[in-house]
Amino acid sequence: MTEQIATPQSSVRPRVAVVFGGRSSEHAISCVTAGSVLSAIDREQYDVLPLGITQDGRWAVVADAAERLAIGASGKLPDVTDIAAPTGSVVLAADPTQRDIAVLETGAVTDVLGSVDVVFPLLHGPYGEDGTLQGLLELAGVPYVGSGVLASAVSMDKEYMKRVFVGFGLPVGPYVTIRPRDWERDPAAVRASVAELGFPVFVKPARAGSSMGITKVHEMDAFDEAVETARKHDPKVIVEGMLRGREIECGVLDGPDGPEASVPAEIRVRGDHEFYDFEAKYLDDVTETDVPADLTAEQMAEVRELAVAAFEAMSCEGLARVDFFLLEDGGWVINEVNTMPGFTPVSMYPQMWKATGVEYPQLVDRLIRAALDRPNSLLR
Rank of each mutant, 00 (worst) to 15 (best):
F324L: 08
V263A: 01
D254C: 12
G198A: 12
L38T: 05
T110S: 14
F324Q: 06
V190K: 04
S30F: 07
Q4G: 14
G75N: 08
H218V: 10
E279N: 14
G167Y: 10
E225T: 14
A70Y: 02
T2V: 13
P143Q: 04
Y127A: 12
V62C: 13
L113C: 08
G148R: 05
A40E: 05
V116I: 15
V37C: 12
A94T: 14
D64R: 07
V103F: 03
V194K: 01
V358S: 01
G330I: 12
I214S: 03
I29L: 06
P264V: 09
S11D: 15
V80A: 03
G342V: 03
A226N: 11
G342W: 01
A40C: 02
I101P: 10
C31Q: 05
R181Y: 08
E138H: 00
L92K: 09
E228H: 13
V239R: 01
L77V: 12
R268T: 15
V62Y: 03
R366T: 14
G135E: 04
G57K: 01
V201Q: 04
F120D: 10
S262L: 11
E336S: 09
E67C: 10
V103L: 13
N335W: 01
S36M: 03
L379V: 13
T97M: 12
L319A: 03
G114K: 04
V116S: 00
D257Y: 05
A102N: 13
P96C: 08
D100Q: 14
V263Y: 11
Q351T: 08
P345I: 04
T177C: 03
R270P: 06
G255I: 01
V37G: 12
E67M: 01
V154I: 15
A108N: 10
V364S: 07
A320Y: 03
P8V: 02
F311R: 07
L253P: 05
A309K: 15
A206L: 02
P121G: 05
V112H: 06
F311Y: 15
D365K: 13
T339H: 00
V112K: 11
T7W: 09
I214C: 01
E3W: 03
R13T: 08
I214V: 14
V291R: 06
L372Y: 07
G21I: 02
S147F: 08
G173E: 02
F275H: 08
L319F: 03
N338C: 11
A40F: 06
G88I: 03
I368Q: 02
P78M: 07
E328P: 13
A70R: 12
Q98S: 13
A371E: 04
V217M: 07
D272F: 04
E105D: 14
P86G: 04
A94V: 07
G148K: 02
A84S: 09
A73M: 12
R58K: 14
V176G: 01
V190M: 12
A313Y: 00
V176P: 03
Y349W: 05
S211R: 04
V263F: 02
I71V: 15
A85K: 08
A188T: 14
I267R: 10
A63H: 15
L49R: 01
S210F: 08
A66C: 00
D221G: 11
G141H: 09
V303Q: 06
G114V: 03
L51N: 06
A320C: 10
D130I: 13
E129L: 12
G241P: 08
E228M: 13
S36L: 05
C316I: 09
D95F: 02
S210V: 10
S210R: 07
A66M: 06
R191S: 10
